[in-house]
Each structure stands twice: as structure tokens, then as C-alpha cells.
């Protein structure tokens, strides 16, 4: 089997799990299930003379073919790195020194998703064990609050399982949205109760994020939705999932074109 044939095969079975826009908003970085990381130039892909070539990565490299379930986020101060790991714990590192400062343990299964709130002083984790836990990063120890969407009657879908795949907080930090096997639902943080349930029969949720007022959410095979809000002229919505194509929507309405994960 020659290299080109193999990569063509891989292309057919590529799933893009994560993507991220550069701080300048000109580039999009995406990672796939083969541990490959590709960099796209959004500016070139949006330019008037864009063709097939500009929709391919301008640069790509092999990341680690890690099997660890990792959810990483940075605090607002930028000095701490939080990782929700496959060992059911959240580890916090100091980025400057590289030292592990603390470990938050309590989840009974691995962690799917992690987000910070209150300027990085607290973090919210969603886990395979069906709970969403809110932690105080500075104190460590047990979780401050525990939400249980998998057992709450308004949200639970026992036919699909317990796992909570995604969690996110809104800007004012009054509301939390989580979804997975249970229904995608918005929880009021002060009363710790589900307020709204977003029904999507049969589909499980893998990704949720707040964008202005809407809650884009996606069903099983889409793994990542990103909005390039860093650059006004390149403001696009990109959607990645179980395909080698990353769909770019320029007007948030329909797909404009696709980037190809062709490394």
C-alpha cells in the first residue's frame, strides 16, 4: 500500500474532533482522530479567488495519538491550565512553572468536558458518570456543587445512558447548559434546577456553546462548532464532525464551503 492510497483511505474515515481559531482570527486549527493537526488559512479560503487548494491545510503535523480523554481550558489570567482527564480527576497545572498545583477528584468516571467560570476561580465539569460538578479551583478537594441531569426527571433519558458530554456557562454565569445522553438543558445556577429542556428526540449532544443569545447545539456526529469572533472581517461559523470536511458558514445560515482535512 502506497502512502497516498493510505492517506486517501484515512481521509474517508476522518473525524474532526476539535478546532480552534487563532487569536488573530486568520487561521483555523483542527485535529482529527488520527492525531493529526492541520492549520487552515481562513483569509485565503474566504478570498475571492479561493479554489480547491486554498481549502486544504497550509500546514499540518502529527500530534500525539493519545487515547486520553482530555478537556483543556485556560483560566482568564492565563497562568493555569486545567485538564479533565481519563483518570476521573481534574488536574491543574501552573503554566509558568509547569508544576501540578492541585487535583480535583470526585467524579466516578472520566470527564468529557470542562469549562471555567468566575474568571477561572471555579470550574464546571461534565462526566461519563452522569453528573455535572462545580469546583472551586483554589480550594481543591470535593466538588462545591453537584448537578445530576441523568437522574433528574425533567432531563433524564435512561435509554441513552447517563453520560454528560458537554457543558458551558453563559457570560453572566447565571445559567449553565449541559447535554449528552440526558436532554440538553439549561440550569439555573443559583437554584441548581433545570429551567429549560431543549428537546431533540433520539439525538445525543456532543457540543454546546453560548453565542450571543442563541445556543448552537449539535447532534451525535458533529463534534465541534466554533465561531471566529476574533476578526470582524473573517467572522464565520465552522462545524466539524465525523467527516474529513469542515463546513464553513459565512452567514450562520447555510454552508458556504468545506475545508478538507487532506494532510
Amino acid at each position: 500500500m502506497t502512502g497516498t492510497d493510505r492517506s486517501k483511505r484515512q481521509l474517508l474515515h476522518t473525524t474532526v474532533f476539535a478546532q480552534c481559531f487563532s487569536p488573530c482570527g486568520k487561521y483555523l486549527v483542527a485535529a482529527n482522530n488520527y492525531g493529526q493537526i492541520a492549520v487552515y488559512s481562513i483569509v485565503a479560503a474566504l478570498s475571492p479567488n479561493a479554489d480547491e487548494e486554498t481549502r486544504k491545510p497550509i500546514y499540518s503535523f502529527d500530534g500525539s495519538k493519545g487515547s486520553m480523554d482530555l478537556a483543556v481550558t485556560e483560566t482568564d489570567t492565563g497562568t493555569e491550565l486545567l485538564a479533565g482527564c481519563g483518570d476521573n480527576n481534574v488536574h491543574i497545572w501552573d503554566i509558568e512553572s509547569g508544576n501540578l498545583t492541585s487535583t480535583l477528584s470526585g467524579h466516578k468516571d472520566y470527564i468529557h468536558c470542562l469549562c471555567t467560570k468566575n474568571a477561572g476561580r471555579e470550574c464546571v465539569t461534565a462526566s461519563e458518570d452522569g453528573t455535572v460538578r462545580i469546583w472551586d479551583c483554589r480550594q481543591g478537594g470535593e466538588a462545591v456543587q453537584i448537578l445530576d441531569p441523568s437522574s433528574h426527571e425533567a432531563t433524564a433519558r435512561p435509554s441513552l445512558g447517563k453520560w454528560v458530554a458537554c457543558v458551558t456557562c453563559d457570560v453572566n454565569e447565571d445559567w449553565l447548559v449541559c447535554g449528552g445522553a440526558p436532554h440538553l438543558s439549561a440550569w439555573h445556577l443559583r437554584s441548581l434546577s433545570p429551567m429549560t429542556t431543549y428537546n431533540s428526540p433520539g439525538a445525543t449532544h456532543n457540543f454546546a456553546m453560548y453565542h450571543e443569545d442563541l445556543v448552537p447545539c449539535s447532534a451525535t456526529s458533529v463534534f465541534s462548532v466554533a465561531i471566529n469572533s476574533k476578526s470582524e472581517c473573517n467572522k464565520v461559523l465552522s462545524v466539524a464532525g465525523s467527516s474529513s470536511k469542515i463546513d464553513i458558514c459565512t452567514n450562520f445560515g447555510y454552508k458556504a464551503f468545506s475545508l478538507v482535512f487532506d494532510v
Binding site: 474532533f17 487515547s67 480523554d69 472520566y110 468529557h112 458530554a165 458537554c166 445525543t204 456532543n206 463534534f223
Partner: peptide, 15 residues
């Protein structure tokens, strides 16, 4: 019926 031995039935966000 379950005949195989698994460590875990599903892993990661993509199950």
C-alpha cells in the same frame, strides 16, 4: 447476549 469481554462499552465523546 453479551459474549465478549470489554473493559468499557464506550469511550470519549464519540462513544
Amino acid at each position: 447476549a453479551k459474549e465478549k469481554v470489554f473493559t468499557r462499552t464506550a469511550r470519549g465523546r464519540q462513544r
